[in-house]
Design a protein around this nucleic acid. Structure first.
Lengths: 359, 359
DNA sequence: AAATTTCCTTGGATCGATTCAAATATAGAC
DNA sequence: GTCTATATTTGAATCGATCCAAGGAAATTT
């Protein structure tokens, strides 16, 4: 092939092979899809032609249109793509989704976007058979977009508001209650809360009043409710409990702790809405020579594996992450059109980050 | 829609909308793809029809065939899918690939398979614009399959054997040399090697002879060569250095250490071919009250973040993982048909897991 | 030798969109 | 009222395969 004759070479199609081998395109297709029904001699001829012309085999793009099934599940998030590999909770969840996909031979497509327009387009044009939506935050928009595709889909971390959305989630109120009761029973009376983001994606201290009025994400709100319901039961005035909202990253957790420990009444117990926050908090406390659980007890939320190896190991409210991943994949692959809403139980894992109140 | 009339409802196509709105399918297509060129009145009519019929927007499956571009990069491995989320090295690499993809708006498709047949099919039918191949092990088969797709592709961890394969890798020989020299300069003379898998995917002790003859994966072989070349320079008889091949998991690393430390001559220095192995080794050594680096020094390979937080922090040969990920994505997206082979430099990160020989 | 059965092969229809040259409608100029 | 320029719309062609009813050839039965 010289520079003169080549130019931009048009890719070889199945039809080209068929013509070269002197058979119909139907037969050529059979050679690749069901070789056993083609006569030996013909099959070899077609294969030889394919080989000679550098044909890579039937293009999945063409097959897809006819077949309809992509054989891949889309996992969508409003965070950057690297969230799937950076965040401890996401990682464990993805590992369990992976296992379920492996078992059925389905692939995984990661869908995300930096900005909102891009996100919409990415969701609209994703080649998948269904979506699993991570709605850690910014969930509603994402759920909306995914639903518009009219593909099987299921939200993880369910928004209890919207009953019409298929979702697999946990009982946030009950889980938070377990954490709060555990600490209260250990004698703690001065609490602080490290909260996840609310809808307006800011961070900083939050007043009780704001909690009532602002549009918190339902997960955040439910956990807060769970904490407070239980604390009230122990006679604690929850209106005095400082709440600091973080971005679930190291920087804002540190800022939160600076704030909390600068208050006149230092807490002896911290309720963190994620293990990630709790682990960052552990680092900060160690650096500030605040003993855990000697001076301060802390309870996380999620049950990520890192919590078992931290110093000290983290007491936490464990979500059944593996179960959730498995159920989510099942809901997509075995979608029967019915609305799948499941609320899974959580359980308190008591480790060394919580102990009796020093007071 | 009653049960009698509905049956299995055929999904609505763009053509159905066009007919309902009384326009051609060309115009209907424009309403979604380039709304600005359609007269307002017509556009609204079409949109209304779409709304009324529950049309989810143009199906990407159809568009794909015409457009040709999927806008997604396939990342392939011979390991189970969960490898991407479990393995520390893979995670860091994926995070950097993610960032590069986010920057260009490309999606990521994870491709893998439990068994070999499935793998072939998954690679052949993946809807992607190109492949990044993780060839940690079983690499050659994977590379072969990916090449057959005739899509842009690049191998990570290059097989120096095959000069015809586009690859981004590191200088394994030089990197291993750095590790070996570092320990030798600290006075160590009794070494042991924790090696990665060879081609036959077994594990256990390996003799010097086997090393010469067996089909080791080139990465493993090159690292071994690098270690030995440098050790020889210090007058160490490398034929006496025990080599234990692991599966890069906790179990086989522990088995390896049991084996190595049961030998008459205990080593004072361990060369591990991955940080993952080194970190598992650190756990084992601590449990057996063998001080690091007091009794035994250990140097890993990869430079994963976990190595900075281990007890003690791990001395390691750091790969430029972020750079590799970025280059790999660039190689796929800006593929110009040229063969892209890059050998990146590594650097030794000295931390607390290596110290002077106790002897 | 005709009839029947079995095995392969053919070619048109289809999957769901996009594209673009040609046709038509509309507006503005004279 | 005709002509030109501009704005819209049309519909055939295309993307690359799979599916399947129908037809033809070879093998077997009667």
């Amino acid at each position: 092939m010289t520079a003169l004759t080549s130019g931009k070479t048009r890719p070889v199609r199945l039809a080209d092979i068929a013509k070269a081998a002197g058979v119909s395109h139907g037969t050529a297709s059979n050679v690749f899809a069901r070789p056993e029904i083609v006569r030996d001699e013909v099959r070899e001829r077609v294969k030889a032609a394919a080989e000679a012309m550098g044909y890579a085999g039937p293009d999945p793009k063409g097959r897809l249109l006819r077949a309809g099934k992509v054989n891949a599940i889309g996992v969508a998030t409003a965070e950057p793509l690297s969230y799937f590999f950076d965040d401890p909770f996401a990682r464990v969840m993805m590992a369990s989704i992976s296992q379920a996909c492996d078992a059925t031979g389905a692939g995984i497509s990661l869908v995300s976007a930096a900005n909102n327009e891009q996100l919409a387009w990415n969701i609209q044009s994703a080649l998948v058979d269904g979506f699993i939506v991570f709605c850690i935050e910014g969930g509603s928009r994402l759920v909306e977009l995914a639903r518009e595709r009219k593909l099987p889909f299921v939200a993880l971390d369910l928004d209890s508001e919207n009953e019409a959305v298929a979702a697999i989630g946990i009982d946030n109120v009950a889980g938070a209650g377990l954490a709060a009761r555990h600490l209260a029973e250990l004698g703690h009376r001065r609490f602080a809360v490290l909260a996840l983001e609310s809808a307006d994606a800011g961070f900083g201290p939050v007043t009780q009043e704001q909690v009532e009025t602002s549009a918190l994400y339902s997960g955040t709100r439910d956990r807060l409710r769970g904490y407070f319901a239980e604390l009230s039961r122990f006679g604690i005035d929850v209106s005095l409990v400082p709440i600091y909202e973080t971005l679930n990253d190291e920087e804002s957790v540190r800022a939160g702790l600076e704030h909390i420990f600068a208050l006149p009444q230092r807490p002896t117990a911290i309720l963190a809405m994620s293990d990630r926050m709790a682990l960052h908090a552990l680092d900060w406390l160690r650096e500030h020579d605040i003993a855990v659980p000697g001076d301060v007890s802390i309870v996380g939320f999620d049950g990520v594996p890192e919590g078992a190896d931290s110093k000290p190991p983290l007491t936490t409210v464990a979500q059944p992450i593996a179960e959730m991943g498995r159920l989510a994949v099942k809901a997509i692959l075995e979608n029967d059109g019915s609305l799948n809403r499941q609320l899974l139980p959580v359980n308190l894992v008591i480790r060394a980050s919580s102990g009796p109140s020093p007071a």
